[in-house]
Design a protein around this nucleic acid. Structure first.
Lengths: 234, 234
DNA sequence: GTCTTTTTTCATCAGGTGATGAAAATGGGT
DNA sequence: ACCCATTTTCATCACCTGATGAAAAAAGAC
């Protein structure tokens, strides 16, 4: 209509169309996932159009469908890409804790082994991981399909947490452990999504990007909460 | 195009168009807000179209714009409608607690006074309130404009909570209190939004609709968390 | 250098989007 | 019974949505 849009693209890709080697093809797929991740994290699934993703990635709209199919499949690909890495990191962290403190596990230690890998990845993993955590937090609070999605991707490691806690406190009831996990995950997800609310609320005293401050408090907070609930019930 | 859609509407409204008395006009406005509330809560702002809202309310699409203007203004109207009621209930609850326990306030008591009105309203207020809480939880986790919206509507009562806690534990630092509040609100919002995740996670042991179970645990959980963080810092 | 396969672009579709202006229907005031 | 203000409906606009099929361009096989 107006003017043919120039074939500009941010990356170091050559100007023309066509097949630019397999390596570049994979790279382009990742570029699309990165763009989609950031936009979905900020505006949610319905708040983003495939055209926006294409523009952000510097790519033709049709290419998104070529690689990923429907929009929802793109979203799932974004969600899946880091979920496995996350689960592996958490499993490894819990493995390490179990091996190191097999005889003398504490509630706080188990909880730290469960949460800390996420904080660490968010701190060291770059902007992509930050977006991803915001995305997960949003999904976690999505009534329509969020619960099902979270269940599908993250249930196993949660069950392992609950079972380990049951080992540490055998007299605790599963009901209490599951409710406490629910409280824990709400706190953790809100902290990881870094919404900036605490910044304005505390008038500059706290910053949601300060995950070191979270680390210094969240483990103790949750552990004490667990202990209190268990004690009250028993 | 296809066939003229029948003028059916669920309510007891008369069939024809035109001006059906002032009382009905107000009633219709509320009907639209109810429909919008339920849909926004389930699918988010961008996941709902004005046409869906109109269909759910049994109303012409243009009527929504006649009453509320742009779609975003409709959303704000939904958010605002119950926010004031909520704030009043919480202020009243904290007033009552302060009056009754002026000399012997506890951290758990203050937290209960802060959270309990929400649980109570959610239990007694009907489906509209349930949707509303899910909506607030979603906004709370929305990076783009959620923090700003939450701040605008709910800051005062939160500041009052923090100040009261500071009175109960004068040696506590504000930084710790704000972080603990952040943890608390994450747990509380997730519990209030009743996503159903705990149902499948616990394999039927717990139900997210069971707010009595939340009441029996959340206050103690948060209070113990606060105390632990304060103690660790001091 | 040709031929084949894969990637990228273009043009476009069918339907949905928020929004608006004018007309129609209604009820209250007098 | 008439008018007038208000509410509801209808028809439509300009644009955007996800998605697709065919053509064009590039890379690799031989």
């Amino acid at each position: 209509m107006t003017a043919a849009k120039p074939p500009s693209r941010s990356g170091p890709r050559s100007g023309g169309r066509g097949r630019p080697s397999k390596a570049k093809g994979l790279d382009l797929k990742e570029t699309i996932l990165d763009a989609a991740e950031g936009l979905f994290a900020r505006h949610g699934f319905y708040g983003v159009t495939t055209r926006q993703v294409a523009a952000e990635a510097g790519v033709d709209t049709a290419l998104i469908h070529y690689y990923f199919g429907a929009k929802r499949e793109l979203f799932d690909a974004v969600f899946l890409r880091r979920a496995e890495i996350l689960n592996q990191a958490r499993e490894a962290s819990m493995d390490a804790y179990l091996r190191a403190h097999a005889g003398a596990m504490t509630v706080e230690g188990v909880i730290e082994a469960f949460i800390d890998p996420l904080l660490r990845i968010s701190q060291d993993g770059g902007a992509g991981w930050k977006s991803y955590f915001a995305l997960v937090a949003q999904v976690n609070n999505t009534p329509a399909w969020g619960g099902e999605t979270m269940t599908r991707f993250f249930d196993p490691v949660v069950h392992r947490l609950v079972e380990t806690l049951k080992t540490v406190r055998p007299q605790a009831e599963y009901r209490d452990l599951y409710w406490c996990y629910q409280f824990l995950t709400g706190s953790m997800m809100l902290a990881l999504s870094e919404t900036g609310r605490i910044d304005s609320l505390s008038e500059g005293e706290c910053h949601s990007s300060d995950l070191e401050a979270v680390r210094a408090r969240l483990f103790a907070y949750c552990a004490a909460g667990f202990e209190a609930v268990i004690a009250r019930a028993g």
